[in-house]
Write a protein that binds this DNA or RNA. Structure first.
Lengths: 247, 247
DNA sequence: ATATTATTGTCTCGGTTTGATACAATAATA
DNA sequence: TATTATTGTATCAAACCGAGACAATAATAT
C-alpha cells in the first residue's frame, strides 16, 4: 500500500489531504511488478524513509478515474512506461488487515503527524495487480515518502508490511496459471532472446527446472517464434539462435 | 448490484440509511450464482418491483466485515446455504459504470425518493464473484425491493441493468478456465450422479458437445470418482452406474 | 419367451504429445 | 588440431486423445 505521491501537487499528498476527498475511500491497489534479469525473477519494492519498511508500490483511485487507469498512472510514475502488461490478481478484503499502525509510523517518519481518524489509517480493501515489464528498459523511481524503488529477487524478498508478502504469493500463483495461455515471455524479455533465456523465464516463474529438449521442441511447435541470426556470446561453445515473438 | 435488504432492520435499508455509514463507501459486490438442472446451466437473477429491471444479486460490505464474509452473508439470505463454493472473478472499476440512473428508478418504485447526492447513486467499484450451488437444495428468496429471485438459463438471459451482462460473461470465462483444475462438478451436482450428468455439466459450461467415450475415459482415469450401484431410470436401455466424488 | 431399441461401458486403432536419451554440430580455447 | 561446453535435432517408448466399433443390458413390443 505504498502510495504514489507528487510533492508538487499537495492534493495528492496523503498527509495534507485531510479528508482524502480526492480519492475513493477505503479502496487501494497494490501492484506486483515482475521483471527478469540474469536467471532471476525480480519484483519492484519501495523502501520508506527512516523506517526499514518495505512494501509493494500501490496507490489510490481518483474519484473520476477508472480503476485500471489509476494503476497505470502509478506504474508510469515508478517506471516511466506507458503500455504495461497488467492483470488483476485478487482482492484482499479482510477487515483486520490492520495497515493503520504501520501507515502512521511512515507518515510520522516523513513529518506528518496525523490524527487517529485520518483517512489513511482507516480500513482499506486492496485490489492486487501484477505487471510484467522489460527489466532493462526501466530505471525505477522512488516517490516523496520513500528512499528507493528497486528490484529484489522474487525468491528472496525481505519481509513486507501491510501483509504484502501474501499479495506477492498470490500474484506468483496467478502468473503461473497464466503462463501457458498468455505468452508471458513476450513482456519480460527483450525483443530478441535465446531459447535458453525463454526457458529461464519459465523456470523462474514455475520455480522448477524444465527439460531442455522438451521445452525447445514445445516452443518451436507452438509456431509463435521467429528465428533470426546467431548470438555469439564469446563463450567456447555453439552459438544459439536468437528468436523474437511473431506479431 | 441488487442489494440484500432486510426490512426489519432499517440500518440495512439503503433508502433510509442516508449517509450509508454502515457500509464501506464506493464498494459493492455482485455474485453470479450458477446452478445446473436438466441439461442447462442456470443463473440466479433478481427482478425489481414495478420496473422490469433484472440484475445479479449483490450487496455492500459492512465497516467491520470481511469482503468474503459480506458475499457469503448475501448468498445465505438468497439461498439459505452456508458453505457455498465461492470464487472471486474480476473487479469492475470503470468510472462511467453509471448505475445511478437505474438505481434511482428502483428506489422511487419502492417509495424512496432520494436526493441526487445519496450514497447509493454515487460511483461504485464492483467486485464480482461466482458461486456454484446444488440447484435442488435451494429455494431462492427475493428481498424487500424485489419481486423475485429465480433461476434463468445461462444461455438465454434477459438484458440486465448495471452492466451485469458483462459480469456474467466474465464469470463464465473464469468458470471455463477453472473447469479442469477445480472439479467444478462436485459443487453443481447432487452427491450421486451418472456419467451423463457430469458430462452435461461440462458441456453446459463449455458451451459445446463433448465426445462421450473420450469424456468417460478421461474422468475414470482421473481416479476421482467412486462407483456405486446402478441407476434404473425406467427407460428401455442399459442402466448407468451412479458415481460420487472421492473425498 | 423372444425380438427390438436406446443407452451404456469398454476396447481398439491411428495420430499426436511428452519424457528421456543419444548424438552430431559448433564457437572459442588450449 | 584436439578439447570442452552448449545447442539443435533425432529417436524411442509411454501416455493421451479423437474416432469408431461392439457387446451388454433395461424396458417395451411382439
Amino acid at each position: 500500500m505504498r502510495r504514489y505521491l507528487n510533492m508538487k501537487d499537495t492534493r495528492k499528498n496523503p498527509g495534507q489531504d485531510i479528508d482524502g476527498k480526492n480519492y475513493l475511500t477505503n479502496i487501494a491497489y497494490d501492484s506486483v511488478v515482475f521483471g527478469f534479469a540474469g536467471d532471476k525473477l525480480k519484483i519492484l519494492l519501495m523502501e520508506y524513509h527512516n523506517t526499514k519498511f518495505f512494501a509493494l508500490p500501490g496507490g489510490f483511485v481518483l474519484r473520476k478515474e477508472n480503476l485500471n487507469d489509476a494503476v497505470r498512472r502509478g506504474l508510469k510514475e515508478r517506471t516511466g512506461l506507458d503500455n504495461i502488461y497488467l492483470e488483476q490478481c485478487y482482492v484482499f478484503g479482510d477487515a483486520d488487515r490492520n495497515t493503520g499502525k504501520e501507515m502512521k509510523k511512515i507518515l510520522k517518519a516523513n513529518g506528518f503527524d496525523v490524527h487517529d481518524d485520518h483517512w489513511l489509517l482507516d480500513r482499506f480493501i486492496s485490489i492486487a495487480y501484477y505487471a510484467l515489464i522489460n527489466y532493462e528498459s526501466v530505471v525505477p523511481q522512488p516517490d516523496a515518502l520513500s528512499d528507493s524503488c528497486t528490484w529484489y529477487d522474487a525468491d528472496n524478498l525481505p519481509e513486507l508490511i501491510f501483509g504484502h508478502n501474501a499479495i506477492v504469493e498470490k500474484a506468483l500463483q496467478t502468473l503461473r496459471n497464466n503462463l501457458d495461455q498468455r505468452l508471458v515471455g513476450i513482456n519480460l524479455l527483450p525483443k530478441k532472446f535465446t531459447m535458453k533465456d525463454l526457458q529461464q523465464v519459465y523456470e523462474a516463474i514455475l520455480g522448477k527446472k524444465l527439460r531442455r529438449t522438451t521445452f525447445q521442441r514445445k516452443m518451436l511447435n507452438l509456431d509463435i517464434l521467429k528465428r533470426h541470426g546467431k548470438f555469439y556470446s564469446g563463450s567456447a561453445n555453439k552459438a544459439p539462435y536468437l528468436y523474437s515473438f511473431k506479431k
